[in-house]
Structures are given as C-alpha cells and as structure tokens.
Simulated assay, not measured.
Amino acid sequence: MARLPYWRLSGFYLFYFALLGATAPFLGLYFEHLGFSPARIGELVAIPMLMRCIAPNLWGWLGDVTGQRLRIVRLGALCTLLSFGLILVDKSYAWLALVMALHAFFWHAVLPQFEVITLAHLHGQAARYSQIRLWGSIGFILAVVGLGLAFERLGLDVYPAVVLLIMAGIVTSSLWVPNAEPVQQAEAAGQGGFLRQLWRPGVLAFYLCVGLMQLSHGPYYTFLSIHLEALGYTRTTIGLLWALGVVAEILLFLVMVRLLERYSLRQVLAASFLLAALRWLLLGNLADHLLVLVIAQVMHAATFGSFHAAAIHFVQRSFGHRQQGQGQALYATLAGVGGALGALYSGYAWNSLGPAWTFTIASLAALAAAVIIAARMRDQPT
C-alpha cells in the first residue's frame, strides 16, 4: 500500500458518511420538529432515495463514457452543497420536497464514482477496501455522537447549518483526492457488454436482494430515532446508540479481509440478511429493553458492514473495467428503490399498524432476500 493515497481516500469517506450520520438519525427528527406527520416525514425521506433510481445511472454512464469520474465527484459535491442551501429559504412541505430532490440528484452522483476510484487505487486488492471504508464509519460516529449532544443543548433549529458545514467538508476533501481509473482485467474483457454481464448467473438475484435489504432498512432510517425518543430515550442516548452500531461495523471492517478469505460471498450475504431479519424483530418489539437494544445495534456489523463490503466486492468482480461505474450505479439505484419503498411503507404504516408490525414487515423482506441469495447465487472464491 506504499503508493496508495490512503489518508486522502479515507478523508473523503469520513466527511461523506458524516453527512449520513447527520441525516439518518436526525432528518426524521428535524421534520417532526417542523411539525410534519409520519406520512409526510416518510415521503420527504423517500425523495432522496427515489433520486437514486435516476442519478447514479446517469452519472455512472457519464463516468464510464468520459472517464472523468473525479470531476463528477467534485461537481456533485459542490452542487449538493449549493442546492441543500436552499433549505434556508423556506420550510414548507413543497419547498422541502424540492430541496430533497435537487440535492439528492447531485449527492447520489458522488459515491458510486468514488467507489470506482477507490477500487482503482487498490489495484485489484478489493478485499482491502474495508480498511479505507472504515473511516466513513468513524465519520458517521463523530457526527451522531457530536450532533446528539449538540441538538440536546441547542435544539434542532441549527440542523440545516450543521449539515451545510459537513457538505463543505465533502467538497474540500474531494479536491485532495488524486484520480485513478480501473485497469482492464483479462477475465473481465471477455465478458461482453453491461447487459450481458448483468444476465450472468446470480447477478440479477443479487441486485433484487440489494433492493429487499434496503427496503427492510426503511423503518430503521426513517423512524428509529422517533421510536426511541417516544420510548423515553434522550437525544444524546439515541446518538450513542447509533454510534454503537457503527463501532460494531468498524470492527467488522477490520476483519473483513479474513472473512472474505474464509467464506464465500454467498455465505456472507446470506448471513447478513438473516441477522437483519432478527434485528428488525428486536427493534420493533423489545427496544424498550436497553440490553436488547444494544444487541440489536451491534448487529449493524452484519446488516450494513458485512453486507456492504461483500456487495461492493461482488459488483467489482461481476463487471468489466468499462462497466464498473454502471455496476456501482445500479447497486446504488436498487438500494435507492428499496430504501424509498421502505421509507414510504413505514411512513404510512407507523400510525396505522404501529412500530412492531412495521418492523415485522422489514424482517420479512430481509428473510426473503436470504432465501433468494441462498437459492440463486453460486459460491464464488473471493
């Protein structure tokens, strides 16, 4: 790793996922603070996820055609900052919906292209991706813990300013990253075009399961903080609980290389889905017990950590060098479709069915993904 720009790549991930740490636990709380109902909150949270159906594929195609991935990352980061700044103008539902859609269109241009750049810097050592990506988890932890304390003392009115500050950090860190393009590999060159590679055994099943996994996360990302606050937990405690999940994720990333050496991608993904199914049942039914809640948050190591690392590895192995951007973009798109559907259904179900049944539906989605991946994906050496 002597020539790997480790800290430059890691710094970008730190700021990028600090933004996720500012939105995943607190965006729903902020919209509730503004007086919106659960249904409207679900719709507003779903809009950025719906943009993942459009933006990653457009930007991914552009990155593959032009090869200007780093310019796309930098432009996307800057436009994300400028468009989210419009939130300072008005707080009506229609205006916030516009802000959510506009900033997400550019935000979702960034990560898929940056993943390709990172993997290109790794020169085929994709299993070491986790050692860089763990700094994104550290950024998430710093955000959820720091902002939990800040919002406890200052209230949620400062939320937009804090998010804009983190976005400025993403822009700055993107200017520090050197460019790299994936090299053509012999085994990928004969695989044909993007659609032909997509139809290879297990690839479509994998993408379907990506959508189901993100659908199952709908209640978690949209309503967990609201759910815990209703159960009597403070915002500081909520931030610490979110951070605990990401600490577990970091520890998983540290051993992910060895896990991928010992187990197939199919086994890692199936285990991630099964643990997700159990986790949602615990959060929906037993979150009032702190010990159970702690155990459920530790399971984030599987429901995000091992799943995401294995998924990125699978996409990198499944597509040729000229389809890497489109492969990563399709991953982001299916995640966006699933996440949007999850946010929408949880928004409509939260009051009518209650938290327990809302999380039970999420559990069934994750269980379905486990069955599909076990039945349709072939074991591959990693």
Rank of each mutant, 00 (worst) to 15 (best):
V298W: 05
H308D: 09
A311C: 01
Q324F: 00
I312H: 03
Y331T: 00
S306Y: 07
F319G: 02
A301E: 07
Q316V: 11
V298Q: 01
F314Q: 07
G320F: 12
A301K: 01
V298M: 13
G327S: 03
R317P: 12
F319W: 05
A332C: 11
F319K: 02
H300I: 05
V315M: 08
S306H: 08
M299W: 06
Y331L: 15
G338C: 03
G336A: 11
Q323W: 15
F319C: 02
G339Y: 06
Y331Q: 05
G305R: 11
G305P: 06
R317M: 14
V337M: 15
A310R: 03
H313V: 07
H321K: 10
L330S: 09
Q328G: 08
G325N: 06
H321M: 10
V315E: 00
L330Q: 04
Q328T: 08
A340Q: 11
F319R: 00
R322H: 13
H313A: 13
G339I: 07
S306E: 11
L334E: 00
G327A: 05
F307Y: 05
A301R: 06
A335C: 09
V315L: 01
G336W: 08
A332R: 13
A310T: 13
R322L: 10
A340L: 10
A301V: 01
A302W: 12
G339M: 09
G339R: 08
I312L: 14
A340E: 12
A302N: 01
Q326P: 07
Q328E: 03
G338W: 08
H300A: 04
H300N: 09
G327R: 06
A335V: 07
L334K: 00
M299Y: 01
A311Y: 01
S318R: 06
H300F: 04
A332G: 08
R322A: 12
G305E: 11
Q326C: 06
F314D: 04
T333A: 15
V337Y: 14
T333G: 14
H313L: 15
V298C: 14
Y331E: 01
Q328W: 09
G336R: 09
V337K: 12
Y331H: 09
